[in-house]
């Protein structure tokens, strides 16, 4: 189901972020389109789960693209080339090209980051962070939050069922909905806080406040080569970005 992983998650995340930065730096629709076609699409297709990722990208980015097109396509007071005048709304060429630029940028943004995130092995990422000596509190909060999300969603569903079993019927008005939200959230929060208080004791007992470097049960999948590669990628992007932004200013 999952593709065979070649690089460490940290490397892949960094690559994704740097790609986003490059798209922002260059800020031309040609470049965004090229990244989209040459990098994002192949990455999604070869991810091993193209359907899920494709669907997620569509769900996340689709409404944004559409509403952005409507907003800038119809309302762009700065635009001078009027293609159609619809009373208060005017379709302008500038508005459409702005919408296209932003749309492409958002597509790359979503495609790159979601592909990286949805093929990400969270345990491996946490193990790498631990092996690289990241702050243990950060690793705990990130790991624990990611682990809690499905648990919280499941518990919320169970509580909703339990409340229905004792007579909760969700009404239509906003106040009724707010009340329904509270009948679910309150026991959810109380239950989670009770767990958290026990987890507090557990962390104490398991020596979480110790100051030595934490170790990981999972082996280190990071390699010296990748560590160097990450630094090189970072440096190249930094140099390129500076050059790209400064050169036009210097050369006038």
């Amino acid at each position: 189901m999952r593709r065979r992983r070649i690089y460490n998650p940290l490397t892949e995340l960094l690559a994704a972020v740097l790609l986003v930065v490059l798209v922002l730096v260059v800020n031309r629709w040609e470049f965004s389109l090229a990244v989209l076609v040459l990098v994002v699409v192949p990455a999604v297709v070869s991810s091993g789960r193209p359907r899920q990722i494709g669907l997620a990208v569509a769900v996340v980015a689709g409404p944004l693209l559409l509403s952005s097109l409507l907003l800038h396509g119809l309302f762009y007071p700065e635009g001078s080339t009027v293609l159609a005048d619809l009373g208060p709304a005017r379709v302008t060429a500038e508005g459409l090209s702005f919408a296209a630029l932003m749309g492409l940028r958002m597509s790359v943004f979503t495609g790159v980051l979601l592909t990286a995130a949805m093929t990400l092995e969270v345990p491996e990422l946490l193990a790498t962070m631990t092996h690289r000596g990241w702050n243990r509190k950060l690793v705990f909060v990130v790991g624990s939050a990611v682990g809690l999300i499905p648990h919280v969603a499941l518990r919320a569903r169970q509580i909703t069922r339990a409340q229905q079993a004792r007579g909760l019927v969700v009404g239509r008005g906003p106040l009724a909905r707010l009340r329904a939200l509270l009948t679910v959230t309150t026991p959810l929060v109380i239950g989670l806080l009770v767990d958290a208080s026990e987890r507090n004791h557990m962390l104490g007992a398991r020596g979480f406040s110790s100051t030595v470097a934490r170790t990981s049960y999972l082996p280190d999948t990071d390699t010296p080569g990748q560590r160097i590669a990450r630094r090189v990628m970072l440096a190249v992007t930094a140099v390129f970005s500076t050059a790209w932004l400064i050169l036009p200013v210097v050369t006038g």
Partner: peptide
Amino acid sequence: TSSLVVMPLGIALNIA
């Protein structure tokens, strides 16, 4: 740690 253990909870709640 007493603050630390509620932070994941808050994060998960935000999302859930």
